[in-house]
Design a protein around this nucleic acid. Structure first.
Length: 275
DNA sequence: ATGCCTTATTTCATAAGA
């Protein structure tokens, strides 16, 4: 079984590239992030022609996650139990607060789970955090804490599970092109790395993909200043597999070919082959 | 070579990304 994860940076803008890539790579399950469209605008018919069932979760202009599967897609969860939203007591007043309709902030579309081919699969898009002194950073850490609880509950049910996506954290200094360039930035702080470590402590294994070029399995390169062409990237897209799935991993690679050419996403897909 | 930012939207400007 072939599993993939890809931050597509708008599924509608990326549709030609996505369809081409699906037809060529033929993953059985694909986790997509940053679809940037509501579920009812997801190009389900186009993807469906390639044999995929779709589960999509979107909330408009930003965020958005989806799962494509040719091996079944059941028990779909839009978000996870206890998932926080941005706003309220953690940060700036939410829009609803400004309207005088106080209440807990609504979660953003950052997580979708489903059972596909006997595996509980999550497509995740962690909050960016912006800067370490931003309320968005506290929200990011809070989101990871809630994710740990939700994933822990599912692992406790002894389900084969894999959590894939854009975690917006580089696990180690080797996972950024120049650690000195990230001093004072999000994505590399001890607290963010601790959040990943706490996920791994649940029994999740970091399935590190093979880079197709160079020593680092980067998955993201900024669009600006020729960063991709200088291989100045980051490894922030991750595949965290429970023991049952990790034991089935035959190989994994970063498909940097998908980052080339006309109209690419700024992220490359990770492709994992399971026995 | 792979090529110097891109996306959606309240669009001729802005916010966000990381």
């Amino acid at each position: 079984m072939r599993l993939a994860t890809w931050n597509v940076n708008s599924v509608r803008a990326r549709l030609p590239r996505l369809l081409e890539w699906l037809a060529e790579t033929k993953p059985d399950i694909a986790c997509l992030q940053e679809t940037k469209c509501p579920a009812d605008r997801f190009p389900a018919a186009e993807v469906g022609e390639l044999g995929y069932a779709v589960a999509a979760h979107g909330d408009g202009r930003w965020n958005g996650v989806a799962l494509l599967s040719s091996v079944g897609i059941d028990e779909v969860s839009l978000g996870f139990p206890g998932e926080p939203g941005f706003g309220g007591e953690l940060g700036e007043p939410s829009l609803l607060d400004e309207l005088g309709e106080l209440g807990p902030p609504r979660p953003e579309a950052r997580a979708i789970g489903a059972t596909c081919g006997g595996v509980r699969v999550w497509s995740l898009y962690a909050p960016n955090g912006r800067t370490p002194d931003s309320p968005h950073y506290l929200y990011k850490l809070d989101w990871f804490m809630a994710l740990r609880t939700a994933i822990g509950d599912e692992l406790g049910q002894r389900r084969p599970l894999v959590a894939c996506g854009d975690f917006n954290v580089a696990p180690t200094d080797a996972d950024v092109w120049d650690p000195a360039a990230f001093v004072g930035s999000t994505h590399v702080t001890p607290a963010e790395r601790r959040a990943l470590a706490e996920l791994r402590a649940l029994g999740l294994h970091d399935v590190v993909p093979t880079p197709m070029k160079g020593p680092h399995p980067f998955t993201y390169w900024d669009y600006r200043a020729g960063m991709f062409h200088q291989n100045k990237g980051m490894r922030i897209d991750l595949v965290y597999a429970g023991a049952a799935v990790a034991g089935r991993v035959r190989s994994a690679y970063v498909d940097r070919e998908a980052r080339k050419g006309k109209g690419p996403s700024d992220h490359a897909p990770i492709v994992v082959d399971l026995v």
